[in-house]
Structure formats: C-alpha cells, structure tokens
C-alpha cells in the first residue's frame, strides 16, 4: 500500500503544525504543509487543520480563517478532514460542522490532561483552549465522537469531538498529536490517529 498523503493547513498564527507533522511522520505518513493563501489543488487522503490561534483569534477564533482560500477550497467529501482545537473552531465557523465553540465555563484558558470517552474506551489526552465550550441546538447522537468524563469546559452533552460521517469531517478539541510518544508518558493519541487512518 502506498503511503498516506496528508496535508496540514498552516495559517498565520497556527502553532500546532509541527506537532501534527511529527505525529503523522511517526505513523510513516507522507506529510506536506498547505499555505492558507493557496487553493487546495492536489489530492490528499487526509487534511488536518491543526491547533493554534489563526490570525491571532482576532474578532473570534476561526472567523477570519474560514475566509481563507485554503478553507474555501477544502475537498469536502473527497478527503477526510480533521480539525483539532482551532481547526475544530474553524470548521464550526465555516458551517462545515454543526454547533459553535464558545468561551469555557470558567472564562479562562484550560490546559490539562483530560479523561475522555472515545469509542467505548477511556483515554487521556491533553486539552488546551480558551474557547472549547461546545454549544449545539440539536445534534444526532451518532455524530458524537468523544466526550469529556468531567466536562472541563461546560460543553453541551460533554462533547469533546464530533464526526460528520456523511461529509467525512472530524472536529475535536483535545490534542491527540501531543500524546503519541512513550517518552512523554501519554500515548492515547495513537488510538485517535489509528481511528482516523481506518476511516479514510
């Protein structure tokens, strides 16, 4: 089987592109960056929108990034699209995923290792966000991908990640790319990456 082709969109202010690239390379995938100002023309199996503060989160997180050529030309339905943290916020802003992410319940940045329910398993992944409080009117339960065990940020139904199977778009607030290496003690991120790989 040929190597997976992965694209990582980089905005001004993105800061998890290197972590995501390292994680993909850990699995032996073929990775390249996509600059936010370029339209996506090449064919990718998987496109990551990594975490960070695209455009400094000015106005609101993801609100400017959704207008960028790269996001506007996302091959929806063709490639699997995964938004992590700021990527999730961008996908929600762009209405590619339902719901919205608003300020955490305590109105503060939260950085910690959160316990999550994922595919019937209990896993621990780092979370680090200020606006990760997921808000939705009504969501199909089948769309829920992962939930917080202790609902750190006050999300509706404790949702930490969702998966729109029809359009093949995943969004999640936790950072699986930061929990790959045995050296750092946490390896549950691998389970998320394996899952993503199987969904392609």
């Amino acid at each position: 089987m040929s190597k997976l082709k992965v694209g990582i969109i980089v905005f001004l202010g993105t800061n998890c592109e290197l972590d995501t690239k390292r994680a993909c390379e850990f699995f032996g995938w073929d990775v390249e960056y996509i600059w936010h100002n370029d339209k996506i023309k090449k064919k990718y199996d998987l496109i990551f929108i990594p975490g960070g503060f695209s455009y400094g989160d000015h106005i609101s997180s993801g609100r400017i990034a959704k207008l960028s050529p790269a996001v506007k030309s996302l091959p929806v339905g063709k490639s699997l699209i995964v938004g992590i943290c700021n990527g999730f916020q961008i996908l929600c802003e762009a209405k590619l995923l339902s719901g919205a992410l608003i300020d955490n319940q305590n109105i503060k940045f939260i950085s910690k290792v959160a316990d999550l329910n994922f595919k019937g398993e209990k896993i621990s992944l780092p979370i680090a966000h200020h606006q990760g409080n997921y808000f939705c009117k009504n969501i199909d339960e089948k769309q829920i991908l992962m939930t917080y065990q202790n609902n750190e940020n006050g999300s509706d139904m404790s949702i930490a990640g969702i998966y729109d199977r029809k359009n093949r778009i995943i969004g999640m607030m936790p950072h699986p790319e930061r929990a790959i290496y045995e050296e750092l003690g946490l390896t549950d991120g691998r389970k998320v990456f394996e899952f993503v790989k199987n969904e392609i």
């Binding site: 390292r22 503060k108 940045f109 939260i110 950085s111 290792v113 780092p126 930061r178 750092l184």
Partner: peptide, 22 residues
C-alpha cells in the same frame, strides 16, 4: 493553585514530560 497553572498551555510542542497543573 491549579487554577494558575491550568491557564498555561504546557503541552504545545510535544516535548513536555510533566503537567504542572495536575
């Protein structure tokens, strides 16, 4: 004072071994 440390992102960069907040 986890409420202080929890406000600092300590995991970005995928190099950090320990979590001050936890």
């Amino acid at each position: 004072c986890p409420e202080i440390y929890e406000q600092y992102d300590h995991t970005v960069g995928s190099r950090t071994q320990f979590s001050p907040a936890s």
